[in-house]
Design a protein around this nucleic acid. Structure first.
Lengths: 143, 143
DNA sequence: CCACACTATTGGCAATTTGTCAATAGATAA
DNA sequence: TTATCTATTGACAAATTGCCAATAGTGTGG
């Protein structure tokens, strides 16, 4: 998915991941209360890596503003500064359900697009579509 | 997918759609050269509606900058100002293939998330997870 | 001819989103 | 005490996006 005048790894490259951040956090919190850092680690199980912690905390604060989660300071001692415990609210529970529906819609869109793509590719394998063949074609370079 | 302090229909609401714009345009152009307005109409077949024309033209110009498409002025008379004809380049053809792969990756991510969601919901139907039940829970209102 | 509507493309801007980097800060180990 | 690890917060620049207006050619009704 090269985009803009860039390849992978430019500013905004992981936007796909970002859209999965909120539903994934909600799902993780549906399993039970957790700390921000813990959530960060569990995100890897969902293919969401390389998140700067600030992104997670920002998402959590926004979700709290929405009333999807609440947070309290954890009084139990740990090796480090005090931590927040985030827990899902009933509203967050409901939002998670809406997210799931939305993701199913998105899935259908992708399916439709891919189905069309593969069908079309099968139909006219080897045909040309008006673009000049044989010209020097620059390689796609993703940085 | 309520997001931010908004529901559907706020600024940035259709970002999901926007991400399908480029691959869909490439796929449409793979069928053959077309005008911007024509493409705009065909997008509906893919569940992508309500695009402001400027969004499509902006995308097309960016794709041209990348060398994925080329455009020439159509000299045939029509009821209106001169139109551009966009056609896919060999590079655009290749990019379309990469997009398809990327969409398949995305689909896998969604599947994984949804599978986890449904499995978890089945496991603990009726259980609580620490959030206070019975409190007044504000309705989710999407505007 | 003039006003108006329709088709088609272009330009600009403000609000929002996103990535990155730095700051703060407690606890512990050397 | 200095350094290091854990945890959270703040701030900023760049990119994305939606919206609205401008331009412009053609045809239609009065």
């Amino acid at each position: 998915m090269p985009r803009g005048r860039h390849g992978w790894g430019w500013r905004g490259c992981s936007r796909r991941a970002v859209r999965f951040l909120e539903p994934t956090l909600l799902l993780l919190l549906h399993h039970g209360p957790a700390h921000g850092y813990t959530l960060l680690e569990h995100l890897r199980d969902f293919g969401l890596e390389a998140f700067d912690p600030s992104v997670i905390y920002r998402a959590l604060r926004e979700m709290e503003d929405q009333g999807w989660v609440t947070s309290t300071w954890d009084d139990t001692q740990t090796q480090g500064p005090p931590r927040r415990v985030y827990r899902l609210t009933a509203l967050g529970d409901e939002v998670l359900r809406l997210w799931a529906q939305d993701l199913e819609d998105t899935r259908r869109l992708i399916d439709h697009l891919l189905e069309r793509y593969h069908r079309h590719m099968q139909e006219d394998s080897g045909e040309h579509h008006g673009y000049p063949m044989g010209e020097d074609c620059p390689d796609i370079h993703c940085r």
